[in-house]
């Protein structure tokens, strides 16, 4: 059993974890109810909302901890919160209690998650290193980011790399596109590199992994699509949106043609809706931004709910299990 400062630290971690789990549960339900409405807003707003959803449980868990923390014991807020919610035994912590076990399980899950993502990252960076050895840099200068040409008939273009992303375009794609179409593809990829999308996707994948699997898949797919929309929009700053949409359809056709000819592993698949949505978004972009009051107000309500639920859950569980 821990007593005094270590016990306070461990209790605060247990509080943060309980707050995190409760916030994740509430936000999972909120996603089921509201995720369809998110598409009513502009891509930038949608991007912020997805970030809010994946970072929300962390922010709410930590803020709840601060509310109960003895660091602010002399403040009016602490005394006021103490009247509606409080934490028992702040200066005593038992490792074998349900708090201790849940903290250890959360820690083990996080370590396993970091190891899994690290392994995936390492596997990809090895493949990228070899790809670099078999590719040449495009002659034209595109500023900060390199554009590499892959000698392959597979019509593909992608951006990879976390901190110094590089864009890759295959010779199969270059040979089938006009100069303008190729520039559209490259501008699209450069936008991904500029926005550091591979890195942000990794962070989203990591943070969303704490949600139920279906919701995590949903959040990742939604975020991935938003990054594509934003990269399309960046390309449409330099070219006509109709030309960008036309190029998108043409590249999709080329890839379909290739996949029909051979069983090529380098052609990946995702839903039909994505291409359709991207074309529709290019032709008629959604410009409505979400009013700031909505996410701020929602976070405040969620914070109150989380703090009260932490108190209630704590008391409920401890009326069933005791620490002795």
């Amino acid at each position: 059993m821990l007593i005094s400062n270590w016990a306070v630290a461990m209790n605060l971690i247990a509080m943060a974890l309980l707050g995190f789990l409760i916030a994740a549960l509430i936000m999972s339900c909120a996603w089921l109810l509201f995720n369809k409405f998110i598409t009513l807003f502009s891509m930038k707003s949608q991007k912020s909302l997805v970030w809010g959803w994946v970072a929300g449980p962390w922010v709410l868990g930590l803020t709840t901890t601060l509310l109960f923390s003895p660091l602010f014991a002399n403040t009016f807020l602490y005394r006021w919160i103490g009247e509606v919610a409080h934490w028992h035994h702040l200066y005593v912590f038992q490792i074998s209690s349900w708090h201790g076990v849940s903290v250890i399980l959360f820690f083990l899950f996080s370590v396993a998650l970091v190891a899994m993502k690290g392994w995936q990252l390492n596997r990809q960076s090895c493949a990228v290193q070899v790809l670099n050895a078999f590719s040449n840099s495009l002659q034209k200068n595109y500023g900060l980011h390199s554009v590499m040409v892959l000698q392959s008939d597979v019509p593909t273009a992608f951006t990879s790399g976390l901190f110094r992303p590089k864009c890759y375009v295959s010779s199969g794609l270059i040979n089938n596109l006009s100069d303008k179409e190729l520039d559209i593809v490259i501008q699209h990829e450069l936008a991904h590199a500029h926005n550091k999308d591979p890195l942000s996707k990794l962070l989203i994948a990591f943070l969303s992994a704490y949600y139920p699997k279906k919701l995590a898949l949903d959040l990742n797919a939604r975020y991935s699509l938003i990054t594509e929309h934003l990269a399309d929009r960046a390309a449409a700053m330099q070219h006509l949106a109709e030309d960008v949409a036309g190029t998108l359809v043409k590249v999709t056709r080329l890839q379909k043609g290739m996949s029909a000819q051979v069983d090529n592993p380098a052609l990946s698949y995702f839903g039909a809706d994505n291409i359709t949505q991207r074309v529709q978004q290019l032709l008629k972009p959604t410009k409505k931004s979400i009013p700031l009051i909505i996410p701020l107000g929602s976070m405040l309500i969620l914070l109150c709910l989380t703090a009260l639920a932490v108190d209630a859950t704590h008391h409920l569980v401890e009326s069933i299990f005791t620490h002795s």
Partner: peptide, 24 residues
Amino acid sequence: IDSVAGDFIGQGENSLVAAFSSVS
């Protein structure tokens, strides 16, 4: 390319590349 971009197959999960388009 498949090793780098293959994670797209998981419907966006863990995708660390940003492809111009993916065939459906």
